[in-house]
Design a protein around this nucleic acid. Sequence first.
DNA 1: CATGGGAAGTGATCTAATCACTTGATCACC
DNA 2: GGTGATCAAGTGATTAGATCACTTCCCATG
Lengths: 233, 233
Amino acid sequence: MTTETGHLARPTLSGSLAEAVIRMIGEEGLVAGERIGPQRDLAARFGVAVPTMREALRRLEGLGILSFRHGSGIYVGENYNRSVLPNAVLPPADRERLVELVQARVLIEPAIAHQAATVREPAAVARLADLLQDAHRCLTTGEDRLWRVNVDLHRAIADAAGNRIVAEVLDVILLLHAEDQRRILTLHGDPRADYEEHAELVRLITAGEADEVARRMHEHLTDVAGAIGPAKD
Amino acid sequence: MTTETGHLARPTLSGSLAEAVIRMIGEEGLVAGERIGPQRDLAARFGVAVPTMREALRRLEGLGILSFRHGSGIYVGENYNRSVLPNAVLPPADRERLVELVQARVLIEPAIAHQAATVREPAAVARLADLLQDAHRCLTTGEDRLWRVNVDLHRAIADAAGNRIVAEVLDVILLLHAEDQRRILTLHGDPRADYEEHAELVRLITAGEADEVARRMHEHLTDVAGAIGPAKD
DNA sequence: CATGGGAAGTGATCTAATCACTTGATCACC
DNA sequence: GGTGATCAAGTGATTAGATCACTTCCCATG
């Protein structure tokens, strides 16, 4: 029970190498998308053989902190300096797992919306308006992008709450079994009603109506959860 | 679409190997702590050279899905079939980051407590009583374990909510910069008051007082956040 | 100016050998 | 007979160098 080291110890060479690479990225001020040196140079720099260096780099690739491109180079990934990460190699989800995923959203997102209406991070609030408009466009033209836009809208709400950890948590939840979530939610959802509810959520956040937006967000998500939850397949 | 592939694609050999290993673990029904075969056998089985196989395994090690023990074997780790993972190689946290961490708890935990008082997963509720008693013992004897016990109590509350995703989220938040969190919270906290508040939280959960426990949890955490938040160092 | 080819840079994989650590059994000693 | 040291086998860790595959970009050609 209370043992649990959380796999944080790194007594191994490969482990300390990974740590050293992280430090190096920080010192050189590299950001996501930029290239780190060639593996051969890195190996020489840290005084190890290429395969050993590659093991350390692969480890970071698993976390999404690095990204390999054959023939091109090794690049800093999106998850560098990100705290909460999704398990990228998760076994396929059963129905129960998906229900839990949606219920987790029911639990967390109202609180996020409440905070968003309180903090109202300007950049994110501006993006809310854009996304809403974009969603409306997709709705009239029937574009496939609608799902993505709606997800981005929920993420923008989290951004408006002004807390990176919270934003990352929601990000991960929305990313987990993303395809399954999309299938299940588009199946049970009404695009028109979704849009109206999103518009109302954005209005309430902009107006700073924290309590009301939390209530509405709860309803917005409970509708979906209720539709898929009880169904036993 | 907004770019962002979420590093889910695995066109590389090392990537599909990692996926295959995950499948293999599932098929053989292995659980955390059990040994997977020797790397040489695995390499032969999947028809690749040892270094290539090791790269795939290292990638999973980075995620905490595997654990290497020199001379002993390679074992299934705690994070197998876990959805939400902590970044184990995070650069050191600045003060702002730690404040966000605590604020994230303020945001999420009241909702968790509310759900816990509603669902009241029996096993977890039973553990709550045990942990409370344990905390009391630590308090009287002045043991160092108190911090760990208190953290476990918060985690048990999340378990009582009966949602694995939510429990994992809280787990990760409590694990992030754990040492910094411990330092900052023990500095500003009053062990005696903490115990009383925890006892009240447990009582309310057991009694199913969802709204009240959410309010109390919010206060319980706001006290701490308020104490460390404004201070500009 | 556009295009195709080729050279250089870089990652991907392999082979095969050696070293280091763990584990368990064996065996000597008490 | 029990206890402890020792050793052998199993397994991970690291190395070296070579070769193949992919990307990028420059330059010559049309």
